[in-house]
Nucleic acid binder design. Structure first.
Lengths: 193, 193
DNA sequence: GTCTATAACGAGATAGAC
DNA sequence: GTCTATCTCGTTATAGAC
């Protein structure tokens, strides 16, 4: 079975990026963690930029599968949005920032292929949210003011920001109350927050 | 007049942190920009951590003065919130991330004095917002659901997240529409967004 | 207050043996 | 597929002259 070490490298690197940022770790950190040499890492990933790109693509795929599962479960739009926010919450519970939220901060220092992959992640998230928001309007469970795409980007950036600011405080409840409020503003029932 | 070079160093370093992150620049970058040597920088700031701390303190002071000015202008709560969001917008227009939002991403790699200074920045912001939100409730211009402090942290993290995600797109309008929506949810008039 | 020079270390990367 | 060895360069930092 090939790809086992490759997967372990991706796992370790992913955690390091989410915790320390793309410029806050090195091949040496991964090598130490996996009890490998830096040279071995270069066998699997030619350079840090290639590793970074593989990281984002895997993350985007995994995120996409999670969104597919939410669709497959087939609830109301508010239930789907709550499940969406829970993906973020689970990442933060593991003391991590969203991979692409972290890379958005590092954006100016990234190679072009990584940049494009980061933007693609947010595009896909917002496109999925737009579909859910439109479902909510149709079924009468959500009441949007403004366009669905504006509501979607406000939601994504609100959740990313809530993760960003919650981490220094080490306080999940900071994320949770921001997330709850962001979702409540879209609900057709004026849910008391 | 002393402190001129010191100020130039702070200006250059501040911009570098806001654009590239704390681990995305070096003393060499500052030295090149100012046509100085790295050794000269060490005369003014013993190390990168001390420079970083001075950076945050100056930024927090400047931010605090901007908040004082908003208070001094003495409008309604919604006007104050709009002026608050405009501080963020001006930073982003200069293609920069909020200094402390960027450092929140880098948080795990920072020395303890810098960490404390970052948290202090957000504490002060939220405390100021709580006062404005309470003013709005009193004067009837804002209608809060939930506590003022929850609304304040949702606002700060929403604005920080909107900056974070707008930067990869290089698109101010992404920030602006998120900011407009965040403020609209607090308004007593259900402003069409 | 700024310089030259250099130390001491870590980064990303490669050659080539096994 | 992993290793040892090495290269080159960047990074933070210091000593000491001017």
């Amino acid at each position: 079975m090939a790809g086992e070490t490759r997967t372990e490298i991706l796992d370790a690197a992913e955690r390091l990026v989410q915790v320390r940022g793309f410029n806050g770790f090195s091949y040496a950190d991964i090598a130490t963690e996996l009890d490998l040499t830096k040279a071995s890492l270069h066998y699997h990933f030619a350079g840090k930029a290639e590793l970074g790109r593989a990281l984002i693509e895997r993350y985007t795929d995994r995120f996409g599968r999670a969104l597919d599962e939410i669709e497959a479960a087939g609830g109301t739009a508010p239930a789907k949005l709550a499940a969406y926010a829970e993906i973020y919450a689970a990442v933060l519970r593991d003391r991590r920032m969203c991979l692409c939220g972290m890379l958005a901060a590092d954006y100016d220092t990234l190679a072009e292929p990584m940049r494009a992959a980061v933007v693609d992640f947010f595009d896909r998230n917002e496109a999925w949210l737009v579909r859910v928001l439109e479902q909510g309007e149709r079924e009468g469970t959500l009441r949007l003011s403004g366009s669905a795409s504006e509501a979607a980007l406000t939601l994504v950036s609100g959740l990313e920001g809530a993760m960003l600011i919650a981490r220094p405080y080490g306080d999940m409840s900071r994320f949770e109350s921001a997330a709850r409020r962001l979702l409540a503003t879209l609900s057709a029932q004026s849910t008391p927050v």
